[in-house]
């Protein structure tokens, strides 16, 4: 091919890239943003749980819980290195652990977690610990826990909050979502919502 022809082709490529940027990179996201803000403002804004002007978190971002009177979630990937507020104070964010489940180090960490969970739940004795409580999630901030893992904690929550086991179970049930059409996805308990209800915030 002649140099002039190559230049002409490159010119068309650059023009096409500019047009694609205008259409797919500006118009398309702005159109979706417009529709989203009008039709689904809560979801578009991050599904924030706001009570009396205080933003307590998002339905979609789990938080680390370790207190006796709170439902515990998946093993958190929380860290405070990535984000800082305008005033310089660190903000919590999350990263997945990216761990192979077939190493000795992993076995040791799981054993440690099992021991800690069992120590905090004497009423469960030697019952097997539901896997969600001792594994990390794909994101590091899984907002949910399995119904089995929530049920495992009912005795502790009841003792620590002074609520009856039935009350605790009712709160868990209110924050449980079922699989789509009964088969797609898993039943799941939103941990942050349960804890806000246990605290009387929600």
């Amino acid at each position: 091919m002649k140099a002039r022809s190559i230049l002409r082709t490159a010119g068309s490529a650059a023009l096409l890239l500019a047009a694609a940027t205008a259409l797919c990179g500006v118009l398309y996201p702005l159109a979706v943003t417009g529709v989203a803000q009008a039709a689904f403002p809560r979801q578009a804004g991050g599904s924030i749980i706001e009570v009396d002007g205080v933003a307590w978190g998002s339905d979609l971002v789990g938080q680390p819980f370790a207190d006796d009177d709170h439902l515990w979630g998946r093993v958190s990937g929380a860290e405070a290195r990535t984000f800082r507020a305008d005033d310089g104070t660190p903000l919590l964010w999350y990263a997945p652990a990216n761990e192979s489940p077939a190493t000795d180090g992993f076995a040791a960490r799981v054993a440690e977690r099992v021991a800690a969970v069992r120590a905090a739940h004497p009423d469960q004795g030697d019952a097997p610990v539901p896997s969600d409580l001792v594994t990390t999630s794909g994101s590091g901030f899984d907002p949910h826990i399995s119904p089995a893992a929530a049920e495992y904690q009912v005795g502790r929550l009841s003792a620590a909050t002074g609520r009856s086991p039935e009350e605790v179970r009712a709160i868990i049930a209110a924050c449980t979502e079922q699989p789509l059409l009964g088969v797609v996805g898993e039943p799941r308990v939103n941990v942050l919502r349960v804890n806000l209800m246990l605290d009387g915030v929600l």
Binding site: R74, E99, V110, V129, S131, G138, H144, I145, S146, A148
Partner: peptide, 24 residues
């Protein structure tokens, strides 16, 4: 962990949950 971790399917997803999300 020799049976200390429950990997069955009652009330949870059965199998290797390491690195996976509860809802999925």
């Amino acid at each position: 962990q020799g049976g200390a971790v429950y990997l069955g399917g009652e009330g949870q997803s059965a199998g290797n949950m390491e690195g996976k999300e509860t809802r999925i």
